[in-house]
Nucleic acid binder design. Structure first.
Lengths: 319, 319
DNA sequence: ATTACTTATAAGATAATTTTATAGATAGCA
DNA sequence: TGCTATCTATAAAATTATCTTATAAGTAAT
C-alpha cells in the first residue's frame, strides 16, 4: 500500500529536482520532505534520486515512478475541481418528483429560475401520484417533491407552497352544465371518474364528499388525466381536475365546468425528508422556490405566481 | 489538497457500501473508517453517502468522486506492481559503459548471462575511451564500466576483471614481420599509430615505452580501431591492439603480429562509483560478472573465460 | 421481544508527520 | 584559495493524524 504523502513529497521533489523547492511548494520545511522521500525509498527498497554534489537527479526507477505520480496528481487536481464545482453548483444533479399535472403545467415555470441560476446542473424529474413521490423520497430516489399532501408522514417535512383551484368538469351537454352552483350532495348520484388512490386530488375529493355526508359514485379510477378528460367529454361521468389541466379544453368548449357552491382548492406542498442532508442542488432549488413566494404570502394558485413573475419580467425588460 | 487516506477509506466504503466491510478490507476498525469518511465529507462540505436505516448509498456527489477514486487506486496498484518489478528485476534499465574493442568482442559474451537471468531489463551500452567512461560514471550516465584503467580516480572503485593480450601488428610484408622477438627500443624508430589519449591501451603502451627509456614515434592517434587496422595494413605504420580485435585479420593474413620479447597484457577492470547506490540491475550485473570469475582466480584474458564457459555449457548439455 | 449486526461517538493510545536546530557539503564568487 | 550563500542530512522534540477501545444507539431478522 502506497503512502500518498510520501508520493506527494517525491513528486514535488522530482518536479523541482530539489528538496528545498519541493518544501516551498508544499508549505513545509525541507527536512520533512527529505524524510518523506527517504521513507518512500526505504519502503520500496529502491533509490529514486541520485546525487552528485548538491544537485539531485532521478534514477531510472524514479523516472518510472514519476510518470505514475504525475498521472495521480493530475487526477487529484481534477477531483479538487470536481468538488469545488459540486459545491458551487457548477456540476451536479437535482432529483425532483412531482405529480403529472404539476409536471406538465407548472413545473417548467418553477424550474426556469433554477436553470438560469445553475445551468450546469442536470435535472431529473420523476412523475407519479403524491404517494408515489413520498415513496420515492423515502427510497432516496428524489430529494424534493412538489405534491398535494395525500397523507402526512413522520419522516417528511411538508411546506405549503400553493393552492390550486380544482374544477368540476362535465361534458358541455351534461345536465349539470347549466347549473350555477352545485352542492356535493347533488353529485353523489353522478358517476364520477376519480384520480387514483394515493393522489392528493383523490384524498381531497374524498374528504369533501365525507364532510358533506355522502359517498361518491365512483365509475372508475385512473392516474391518467387525459383519459379522464376523454371519458368526461364523452359524457360517461363527471370529474374534478386542476383548472390549469383543463384550460385548453374549456377554451375549446370540449369540456364545461360547473361552479361549486364553495370553491375547492388543492393544497400543494414542497416535501423533503427529515433527518437527511439535502444536496447543494436540492437546497438551492428550495431557495429558488422560497424566493418565488414572499414568506408572509398566503398560498395562492401557481397561475397567480406565473402572472406575477411575468409582470416582473416585463418591468425588468422595460427598464 | 486531497487527503488520500480519507479518499482510500471513502473508496473502500463506497465499494462495499459498508463501513464495517471497508474496515475489514483495510485491516483497521470500523470507527476509524467512519471518522475518515466523515472528515472527508467535512473537508469537502459535501455528503458522499446517504443513509437509510443501517444501509448506506452513494449520493450523486459520492458517485462522481468514486469514479476518480477508482482511477487513482488503479494507478496505485500499477505503482505497486512497478515497484515490485523493479525490485525483482522484471523491469528496469542497466546502463553500462565500455571501450569499443570490449563492446564488440567481449561484451556480448558478458551480457549473455545477465540477459538470460533478467530478460526484461533493458541494457544501454555506451562506448568510448576508458577516460570517457569514467566521465560517464561521474556524470551518472552509466553505473558500471568495464575498461582498462587509464588513470585512478578517487571517486571510482576499480576491480580487476581480466587481462587481455595485446599484440604488435604490422603489415604482412613489413620488415618487422619476420622478427622472432622484438624489444621496445627497436620500435622507437617505427611510425606508430596510437589509440587516443584517455584510452587504457594508450596509457599502457606509453608506459612501456617510458620503462624502456624511449619515446614512440607517433604518426597518428585515433580512437577508431578499424582505421588503425587499415593504416597498418597499408604499411603506413605499426600499432598495438588487443588480440581479439585483430583475430580475423590475422587469420586472413591481412595483418601480421610480431612477438614481443615480453608479452603485453592490458589490465581490464570493472569500475563503478564510490558513494553511490547501485541500482538493482547494476548490482545484479556485478554479481553475474563475479560469478563468471572465481574469486581466487588470477585475472586472465576474456578469451580464456569464454572457452571455459563454453566447456561448462557443453558439459551441462551432455548431462 | 430478543438477538445479531451496523453505524455513531468520545476518550485515550499510538503512529505519522513536521518543526527546530544544527551539521556537513558544495558551488559561486571575491 | 577562502568566504559566503545555499543545499542536503540528521536527530530530538513537538505536533498532528490516525487508530483503538469501549460503548451507545439504531435497525433487521428470527
Amino acid at each position: 500500500m502506497i503512502n500518498f504523502n510520501q508520493l506527494r513529497n517525491f513528486y514535488h521533489t522530482a518536479k523541482n529536482l530539489s528538496f528545498t523547492m519541493a518544501a516551498r511548494d508544499l508549505f513545509i520545511t525541507q527536512p520533512a520532505v527529505t524524510a518523506q522521500v527517504k521513507s518512500l525509498e526505504d519502503n520500496c527498497n529502491l533509490k529514486f534520486f541520485k546525487k552528485r554534489g548538491r544537485t539531485i537527479y532521478l534514477t531510472d526507477e524514479g523516472k518510472a515512478l514519476y510518470d505514475y505520480a504525475h498521472k495521480i496528481f493530475k487526477y487529484e487536481k481534477e477531483i479538487e475541481d470536481l468538488i469545488e464545482d459540486m459545491r458551487e453548483l457548477k456540476r451536479g444533479v437535482l432529483r425532483l418528483g412531482t405529480t403529472k399535472a404539476y409536471a406538465r403545467y407548472f413545473m417548467p415555470f418553477l424550474i426556469t429560475g433554477f436553470r438560469e441560476a445553475y445551468p450546469q446542473i442536470k435535472i431529473h424529474l420523476s412523475e407519479g401520484s403524491s404517494l408515489d413521490m413520498i415513496h420515492s423520497l423515502l427510497d432516496l430516489k428524489i430529494e424534493v417533491a412538489i405534491i398535494a399532501v395525500a397523507e402526512d408522514h413522520p419522516d417528511v417535512y411538508f411546506t405549503p407552497f400553493s393552492q390550486e383551484e380544482m374544477v368540476l368538469i362535465v361534458a358541455p351537454d351534461h345536465h349539470l352544465a347549466r347549473k350555477k352552483a352545485v352542492f356535493f350532495k347533488e353529485l353523489a348520484e353522478e358517476p364520477i371518474i376519480m384520480k387514483e388512490t394515493g393522489s392528493g386530488t383523490r384524498k381531497l375529493i374524498n374528504e369533501l364528499f365525507a364532510q358533506n355526508n355522502c359517498t361518491p359514485n365512483v365509475l372508475m379510477e385512473t392516474s391518467n388525466a387525459e383519459f379522464i378528460k376523454q371519458l368526461v367529454q364523452r359524457g360517461d361521468g363527471i370529474s374534478f381536475l386542476v383548472r390549469e389541466a383543463v384550460a385548453s379544453e374549456l377554451r375549446e368548449k370540449k369540456l364545461a365546468t360547473v361552479p361549486m357552491k364553495k370553491d375547492i382548492f388543492l393544497d400543494v406542498s414542497i416535501a423533503y425528508l427529515k433527518n437527511q442532508h439535502l444536496s447543494p442542488s436540492a437546497r438551492a432549488f428550495l431557495d429558488t422556490l422560497k424566493k418565488l413566494r414572499s414568506p408572509d404570502m398566503t398560498p395562492q394558485g401557481i397561475g397567480w405566481l406565473m402572472a406575477k413573475m411575468q409582470a416582473k419580467r416585463k418591468q425588468t425588460n422595460e427598464n
